[in-house]
Design a protein around this nucleic acid. Structure first.
Length: 883
RNA sequence: GGGCGAUUGGCGCAGUUGGUAGCGCACCACAUCGACAUUGUGGGGGUCACGUGUUCGAGUCACGUAUCGCCCACCA
């Protein structure tokens, strides 16, 4: 840190987030604090970032995800772990290709004009320019990731890992190439996987079409939602046990408009109750039909091409050829109707598959693609979660994961794009013979497969491809693999988490992480997903500019629930974090100002006052809670706990009382030490959530420090020697007393400038406490004279009374008192007490309660009843005296 | 069709082994007092969606109902 002395008095009264954040981040980066040491003796704690797309712009989802990872990393770094957080980006096949293509389009070019090689060159150029951008944005979030280990899913190492995995899986028979119906996106011009297809309910129609029988009169009526596909029909199917149609099975019908003849077949797949009970079978353009076709040895007929247009082929009549699928549908319907083949049209709601990326309606298309056989791989991935090697938090996501894994389907991994890992298969130019290998066996005679791999194929290797895999002897792999925790949203459990688990187990023999921490999704204030098209996005960078990074982090963190509920946010919510940061700043400023001349000595335990012991006890309890909650990923709870402790206990009570103690030359030095210690420890506990402000304040704390920065300081833990349970209990009397007296003051509109006197009627230990805290009462409740009297003395007329524990506080009010309102006030209190007492004594009358409830509870209940009774008596007496 | 989640003061939400409810915002009132108005102090406001059950005792557990949201499946 800079050695120039900063004068505390000169610090601004409003926390300056922007300059602090810049300074602190630079301080950490320059100091190398984010770098992890693979040779350290400390146990490892590792997180790999869910690599954001290189094309990506920082959004609120990242802000939450990265904040949580940073909190975990910083906490463990402070708690004796060698903490490593690996950053990186994803090459995002199609997304990046689209961006570059769009750029080309502005120059009037397509990727085909450039050719594959030149296009890839361009894309690499673009990528290299943008690769660091989103990670640079994440610096604004305070991310303490190790940029010296930054990776890219398409860099040399990851490419090597991809080849290794592909070839190995192929050799094991777990990757195959074959013709299947896949989800084809006519816009992206590529196959996409099942999970990249999203279904939307659309209002469509069910057309009933008549297929005339050949060689005899009559027809069979077929219901379809896609009449344009009739040219690809290869059969009409009915259910074998459907009596309606039993006589027609085996007969031949004619396709309307084209005249081609097809058989009527029987297949169990048909649902007798749906539509007309007869289905047209179009194997090339429907997954179920494809299965039926296979069973009956019917050859598929392609009638729609890759762009979604009707093919120019013998089966499609010439005037339909080249038409777009929807134009074709319209024309087919018109012509069917014109020729009386169309019998009925019904409105029909059905689900239509859409491309997740571009929302184009998917065309199921029979084509040759590469697949990963998932079932054998899934076995271990299921076992690892079932036997607890991998734990999901919250636990319910395990079910979700297992449900998917247990019904796993083969994964279509080939994409007809250029930007990505080109599939390492090579075909002989003449014979067409295929070789799968990491390198081209003979570039003279072999050409590489043109298809690329699904982006998620390389993301699936991320936890170990970033560590040096396939070389498992690297320092990082040995020290930091497997990773500890994976932090992500539930939306990519199938896309990413499941694949990492599968691949990790297969290729390293170890689960790639032991905990999967799933957080909710960020939504707008109405609970809707944020999206650019809806215009409801909130830009984290704007929030940081306006409220500060730590404010953003604190607000988000405080909104995280253990159940991982989605988080609704709006701009104004960040005021919460900003205000807390400001409170932290000003309280720190006050404490630092009052630490002038503080010595380097530790707290002198023999000189601790009641309130000193209380705050140390509360600090200790807070440390305990925070550490426990951190273990269970209750991050929101941690934020709440720290907020309550710092704001309500430290600022509202301890600091206020410390002001009094600082005036006392006997107590001053030790009070300073306590103030400093509690501030120091509070800052440490807050540091993972609010890194910048805590670091900057911590640097200003005077006195010897073991560590060079808070980021590497020791995280507070529970210490038995800081337990002061009795004092904590006794402090309740202080709070009650002050609050009650303030209440009296405000109820009677006693101005702040006026002081009142108070007569305390108390005995025993409580009386001792009152005597010890007189100075607090003077100052915090603006009390002038404090006198004492016997508990049972009659209450003087014209005075307000407060009952605190077993003691009475009498405030003589003389002319100030409004008898009416005081009686009302007291009656209200009495009513509350009586209600509580009735409920409690009802409980005590219940023999079963007395018999079954824990003894302590019964005792507690009795004690409370006694207390209420005593208080009731006092209030009744008081009301009498007022009358 | 199957599964999951939500339902708590005006709004947004907490509430970890069951012991009669907390927080932030908003609201009402007071306060410019040497850390802080991005503030402080005091206060008002909830039969915890509904029903049944288990229990001495249910916001918390079980079953059911309703409304909202999400995921999976994809019958033309």
């Amino acid at each position: 840190m800079t050695e120039t002395k900063i004068k505390i008095e000169d610090l601004p009264t409003v926390y300056d987030a922007k300059s602090t954040e810049e300074k602190m981040y630079k301080f950490w980066e320059d100091g190398g604090y984010f770098k992890a040491d693979a040779h350290s003796n400390k146990p490892p704690f590792t997180i790999v970032i869910p690599p954001p797309n290189v094309t990506g712009v920082l959004h609120m989802g990242h802000a939450l995800d990265e904040t949580l990872q940073d909190i975990l990393t910083r906490y463990h770094r402070m708690s004796g772990y060698e903490a490593l957080w690996i950053p990186g980006t994803d090459h995002a096949g199609l997304a990046t290709q689209n961006v570059v293509e769009k750029k080309l389009m502005k120059e009037g070019l397509t990727r085909h004009d450039l050719g594959r090689e030149k296009f890839l060159e361009k894309t690499w150029e673009w990528t290299n320019q943008h690769k660091g951008a989103i990670l640079d944005q994440m610096k604004r979030l305070g991310a303490s990731f190790d940029r010296s280990r930054e990776r890219f899913t398409f860099d040399e190492g990851c490419s090597e890992a991809v080849k290794e995995v592909f070839v190995t899986l192929y050799n094991k028979g777990l990757i195959y190439k074959g013709a299947y119906i896949v989800n084809w996106c006519p816009r992206c011009q590529s196959a996409i996987s099942d999970i990249e297809t999203e279904y939307e309910t659309e209002q469509g129609h069910l057309w009933e079409i008549s297929y005339p029988l050949v060689g005899e009169s009559g027809a069979i009526i077929v219901a379809t939602t896609r009449p344009e596909t009739i040219f690809g029909d290869v059969a009409i199917a009915v259910h074998p046990s459907d009596k309606k149609y039993s006589e027609l099975i085996g007969k031949t019908v004619m396709i309307p408009l084209s005249g081609r003849q097809i058989p009527i077949i029987a297949d169990e797949y048909v649902d007798k109750t749906f539509g007309t009970g007869a289905v047209k079978i179009t194997p090339a353009h429907d997954p179920n039909d494809y299965e039926v076709g296979k069973r009956h040895n019917l050859n598929p007929i392609w009638i729609i091409d890759e762009e979604g247009n009707m093919k120019a082929c013998a089966e499609v009549p010439p005037d339909y050829q080249g038409l777009d699928r929807y134009e074709a549908r319209k024309k087919v319907v018109d012509m069917l109707s014109y020729n009386n083949f169309l019998l009925r049209v019904k409105d029909h709601e059905h689900n239509v598959g859409k491309c997740q990326r571009c929302n184009t309606t998917i065309e199921p298309l029979l084509s040759e693609q590469w697949f990963v056989k998932m079932e054998p791989l899934a076995k271990e991935a299921i076992a690892a979660v079932k036997d607890g090697r991998i734990k999901f938090i919250p636990e319910r996501w395990e079910k979700n994961y297992l449900g998917w894994m247990e019904n796993i389907r083969d994964w279509c991994i080939s994409r007809q794009i250029w930007w990505g890992h080109q599939i390492p298969a090579y075909y002989h130019k003449v014979t067409g013979e295929m070789v799968v290998a990491k390198e081209n066996p003979d570039p003279e005679n072999y050409v590489q497969e043109t298809d690329c791999l699904d982006t998620w194929f390389s993301s699936g290797l991320w936890p170990f491809s970033t560590m040096g895999f396939p070389n498992s002897e690297t320092d990082d792999f040995k020290k930091f693999y497997p990773t500890t925790t994976l932090v992500t949203g539930f939306d990519i459990i199938f896309f990413w988490v499941a694949r990492m688990i599968t691949m990790g187990l297969e290729f390293t023999g170890k689960a790639p992480f032991s905990t999967v921490y799933i957080h909710g999704l960020i939504r707008d204030e109405k609970g809707q997903k944020m999206s650019k098209s809806k215009g409801n996005t909130i830009d984290p960078v704007e929030i940081i500019d306006k409220y500060g990074c730590d404010a953003l982090r604190f607000t988000m963190t405080s909104l995280c629930t253990y159940g991982g509920q989605d988080i609704k946010i709006s701009d104004e919510r960040f005021e919460y974090g900003r205000n807390f940061a400001n409170k932290l700043w000003n309280a720190s400023r006050f404490v630092l100002m009052n630490l002038e001349g503080v010595d380097d000595k530790p707290i002198d335990k023999s000189k601790l006052t009641l309130v000193d012991k209380w705050i140390l006890n509360q600090l200790n309890e807070t440390a305990k809670t925070v550490n426990e909650n951190m273990k269970e990923y209750r991050i929101g709870e941690i934020a709440h706990t720290l907020y309550d402790f710092f704001r309500s206990e430290y600022c509202d009570w301890y600091v206020e009382i410390a002001k009094i103690q600082l005036q006392d030359s006997e107590l001053k030095a030790n009070t300073q030490r306590v103030l400093r210690y509690v501030l120091d420890m509070s800052l440490r506990m807050l540091h993972p959530i609010m890194p910048h402000i805590t670091e900057s304040v911590w640097q200003l704390i005077p006195g010897q420090k073991q560590e060079s920065a808070i980021i590497v300081s020791e995280f507070p833990v529970y210490k038995d020697e800081l337990r002061y349970e009795n004092e904590a209990e006794e402090m309740k009397l202080v709070f009650d007393t002050i609050t009650s007296l303030r209440n009296v003051r405000q109820s009677f509109n006693i101005p702040t400038s006026a002081t009142v006197d108070v007569e305390i009627r108390s005995e025993g230990r409580e009386k001792e406490i009152f005597k010890a805290i007189e100075s607090y009462i003077h100052r915090l409740a603006k009390v002038n004279n404090i006198t004492y009297a016997e508990v049972n003395e009659p209450i003087p007329p014209r005075s307000a009374t407060a009952v605190v524990s077993t003691s009475k506080l009498i405030v003589p009010l003389a002319d100030l008192i409004d008898l009416e309102s005081e009686i009302k006030r007291q009656e209200k209190k009495l009513e509350k007490l009586t209600n509580e007492k009735n409920s409690l004594s009802g409980r005590m009358k219940n023999e079963k309660f007395v018999a079954n409830a824990p003894k302590e509870l019964v005792e507690q209940t009795n004690a409370r009843i006694a207390e209420i009774t005593a208080q009731e008596d006092v209030i009744k007496e008081l009301i009498e005296s007022l009358k």
